[in-house]
Design a protein around this nucleic acid. Structure first.
Length: 271
DNA sequence: AGACCCCTGCTG
DNA sequence: CAGCAGGGGTCT
C-alpha cells in the first residue's frame, strides 16, 4: 500500500505527536513482525527524529548508543497515534507503544510489513535500506534518471519499481507518472529518448508532490498517522480505472500484467 | 522476466 | 468459488 507519498504523510502526521516524547512501554502482540534488537530496549528512550527513505520510516531515539526503529508497512500496514480516550483499534494490532500523550498502534492485516530495531548510526548501510536516490531530492535530475534507464532492456516501469534503483515509487505512482509523461510502461528502459526521460523525471516529481499535498491515496487500508484517509484517489488518471476514459484523449484505459502486477495505461497517449 | 512465496479480506 | 489487492524476497 504505502508508497512514498503515504509514508511521507505518515511521517509528517506522526512527528508532532512523537518528537521529544519518551517511550514508557512497548507491547509486542505478534512477535513475528519484529526484527532486530529486543523491543524492551526502547523503553525510556526519547524520540529525536522521524525520517523517511523511500517507503521506509525511520524513528530515531536517543541513548548511548542511540537506536533507530525502522518501519516498513508492506501493503496494509498502519502506524496511528491515538490520544487517551480515542477508540482503540482492535483488529490486526501487532504492537503498541505507550507515550505520556497517547499510544502508537502498529496494525497490519496481511503482515507483509515489519518493525526492526537497529543500532543508531550508519542506518543507510543496512541491507534493507540500500536504496536508490530519492525522486524528490533536488539532485534527481533528468541526467540521473537517464543513468538509471540507460542500457536496460527491462520495461521502464519495472525499473521505476526497483527500490535499489529509485526509492519510493510503487505500482500506483509508476503508472501515474508514465501516463503523465506519455510513455508506455512496457517500453524497454534504455530506449527512451532524452525528451521522454525529461518528461518522466518531471512527471514523477509532479505526481509524488501532488499526492503528498492530497495526503496520499486511500483505496481501503491506508491511513495517515492520525488515522485519516488520503484524498489522492480522486486525482488518479489511469490507476484502477480500466475501461474508463483517459482524461487526455477519452480512449478507454487498458490494463495488462507486468511482473504479476496490474499495469494501467492509455494505449493511445502512451507509446 | 516470470513463478512462487509470505498473509488476510473483499468482490464478482 | 477464483481472482485480486498499494509491499518485497527468492529461485529459476
Amino acid at each position: 500500500m504505502p508508497e512514498l507519498p503515504e509514508v511521507e504523510t505518515i511521517r509528517r502526521t506522526l512527528a508532532p505527536h512523537l518528537l521529544g516524547q519518551v517511550v514508557r512501554a512497548v507491547q509486542l502482540l505478534t512477535p513475528s513482525v519484529w526484527r532486530g534488537r529486543d523491543p524492551a530496549d526502547l523503553v525510556g528512550r526519547c524520540v529525536t527524529a522521524l525520517d523517511r527513505r523511500g517507503k521506509h520510516l525511520l524513528i530515531s531515539l536517543d541513548g548511548s548508543p542511540a537506536v533507530v526503529l525502522h518501519v516498513h508497512l508492506g501493503m496494509t500496514g498502519r502506524l496511528v497515534f491515538l490520544p487517551p480516550g480515542a477508540p482503540v483499534p482492535e483488529r490486526h494490532v501487532h504492537a503498541r507503544f505507550s507515550f505520556d500523550g497517547g499510544e502508537l498502534y502498529y496494525q497490519d492485516t496481511r503482515r507483509f510489513g515489519y518493525l526492526e530495531l537497529l543500532p543508531g548510526g550508519a542506518v543507510d548501510r543496512h541491507p534493507r535500506l540500500r536504496l536508490g536516490p530519492e525522486p524528490l531530492d533536488a539532485d534527481f535530475t533528468a541526467g540521473v534518471l537517464q543513468g538509471m534507464l540507460a542500457g536496460r532492456r527491462a520495461p521502464v516501469k519495472a525499473v521505476l519499481l526497483d527500490q535499489h534503483i529509485l526509492a519510493g515509487v510503487g505500482n500506483i505512482y509508476a503508472d501515474e507518472a508514465l501516463h503523465r509523461a506519455g510513455v508506455h510502461p512496457l517500453r524497454p528502459a534504455g530506449d527512451l529518448s532524452q525528451r521522454e526521460v525529461e518528461a518522466l523525471r518531471d512527471a514523477l516529481r509532479e505526481v509524488l508532490e501532488e499526492a503528498i499535498s492530497a495526503r496520499g491515496t486511500t483505496f481501503s487500508d491506508y491511513r495517515d498517522g492520525e488515522g485519516q484517509p488520503g484524498q489522492f484517489v480522486a486525482h488518479l488518471r489511469v490507476y484502477g480505472r480500466e475501461g474508463e476514459a483517459c482524461p487526455n484523449c477519452g480512449t478507454p484505459v487498458a490494463r495488462e500484467r507486468l511482473g504479476g502486477r496490474s499495469t494501467y495505461f492509455c494505449p493511445r497517449c502512451q507509446k
